[in-house]
Design a protein around this nucleic acid. Structure first.
Lengths: 300, 300
DNA sequence: TCGAGTGATACCTTTTGCGAATCATGTTTT
DNA sequence: AAAACATGATTCGCAAAAGGTATCACTCGA
């Protein structure tokens, strides 16, 4: 097999068509350069340069080989570069979990930031509910998740990336739809309330239950997805509590109402979650993006 | 810069995830293998393998670099191979000149044969009249031409690749169109005869003049292209002598008639022409294709 | 005919790479 | 808990490869 030095030597000679000048360009003397080219030709098994005592010319085989040689050298350059960029977190693949609603306010800006600041990074998206994300993070199938508490904070680390108020969603023709004030728990005392799966959407389940402590509404459904909740409300099956960003879902026939206690400090939190064990430089590079105020974090 | 040995070493270790086994696969012992990988990491500037005293694993950077390394090794293989095939004439680019009519019977089969037997060869086609082909061959712009005599046979070598009879083409409503016999020179004694440029289509010019020796037809046009001749005949401007394969041009409103003297040994020859100086292995490989009887040579 | 220019060769020195033995360290077994 | 084992890293001596200097063989132009 030939060596890369031989390739460089050949390319230099092929470009200069002169052993002396090529040697100068390679910072070496002419005799070893001649030998390198000879060895290359022996290794390749084809005459690459036609050289009589007066001039040097490429053979057809040399012409074809020159193109391959250049690609080879280019690949050598890019390979090292790629490895360094991956090590620095500027390139690679991020497997990102997210919940359907987190996508509305957070995923879009995040992906836009990444394509601007880390253009070498590919993102593979996985839509999963939080428990499934946690599972994926622990198995190493995901690098980063966007989910809701609670999760195992021994194995997983996290930070809040978005906070927003809880609000109520009611059918457009509902009596609460026209209440021009923040709703209180008592407003729901005789309502059909659509709530969440205690296991698959535990966070919203608990938020709903906590808000409605001491009131005893009829809790009807047990669904996972916020979109499903809103659609059920639109279908007149009841009222529900959802994060404020659900407004952006664009479902027709429903009205969103503020809640008391939930207007100033948003109790609904979205967390970026990752495995504490992860040493991925890319992950930490991405996490740093959340430091920047351009990221819609901490604010609605 | 790293070396190809280091790349091979890295790939082996990355695939085995074990220095001992990788060394065995590379027919070397473990210590130099460790050093090669260390040198590679230093050259690349990134940690590629995570190795504690019990196991070896690829880092993210190593994962990315492995893919590039494999491409690099594949390219090394193909580059040598390509150069050898070009040297043997099994790959490369053939710049082929041809005249418009030669294309009808010869060019198609030639290109089909080449794509079957020399699939690595690209053909660049140049439609030119014979003198322009000769010029291109002498300048080194063409590798092979398909043309008619005469040409400088000192600098150029040639062989006949196709031979066919001359025939007459007359308008469909012409009196000769219905003559159910081979025509003689005398049949043209009072005809308008369309003939060829003595310089640009000298071969057909001379064939026409020779056939009509002792007859004194009115010679009208002086055109280069056989297609033009046939179109002028179709337009009723006269009659003309053309090679038999002109039938395949598919021009409507004309009739082709055999000529005496021209039925058995075709006087119209198409030659493959090349520069005697050329050492191109590809050229000689292509010329060998004409030896094969499957090639429509010597026969109509 | 001679000198300038070019690539190839001979010979020597320096660098690089390999292999045997050994070390350091973590894991498994007793 | 200690010994045996497994595995990658290190050391050192020798051999192979690469580079440098001097020189040769040859061609071309004055």
């Amino acid at each position: 097999m030939f060596s890369l030095d031989q390739i460089s030597a050949f390319v230099a000679v092929a470009e200069e068509l002169h052993f002396g000048r090529a040697a100068e360009r390679l910072n070496m003397t002419q005799p070893p350069l001649s030998r390198q080219v000879q060895k290359l030709e022996r290794a390749v098994g084809a005459r690459l340069l036609e050289r009589d005592n007066r001039r040097v010319a490429l053979t057809d085989a040399g012409q074809a080989f020159l193109a391959e040689a250049r690609r080879l050298l280019a690949l050598v350059e890019t390979a090292s570069d790629l490895a360094r960029r991956v090590e620095g977190g500027a390139a690679g693949t991020l497997r990102l979990g997210f919940t359907a609603v987190s996508a509305i306010r957070t995923l879009g800006p995040l992906l836009r930031r990444m394509s601007e600041e880390l253009p070498g990074v590919d993102v593979i998206l996985h839509e999963r509910v939080t428990p499934a994300q946690v599972d994926g993070l622990l198995r190493g199938e995901l690098d980063l998740g966007l989910g809701r508490p609670p999760f195992d904070s021994l194995a997983l680390d996290s930070r809040v990336v978005f906070r927003e108020p809880l609000c109520a969603v009611v059918p457009a023709d509902h009596r609460l739809a026209t209440a021009d004030r923040a709703l209180t728990p008592a407003d729901f005392s005789n309502e059909q309330v659509i709530s969440y799966s205690p296991t698959q959407a535990r966070y919203f389940h608990e938020l709903t239950v906590r808000f409605l402590t001491n009131v005893h509404p009829r809790i009807e459904q047990r669904v996972q997805q916020i979109l499903t909740v809103v659609l059920l409300v639109a279908a007149g099956r009841g009222v529900a509590l959802v994060p404020a960003s659900a407004r952006s879902l664009g479902v027709q026939g429903v009205v969103y109402c503020d809640l008391v206690d939930s207007t100033e400090a948003g109790p609904v939190e979205l967390h970026a979650i990752w495995n504490r064990e992860s040493t991925s430089p890319l992950l930490h590079r991405v996490l740093r993006l959340f430091d920047d105020p351009v990221m819609p974090s901490e604010h609605q």
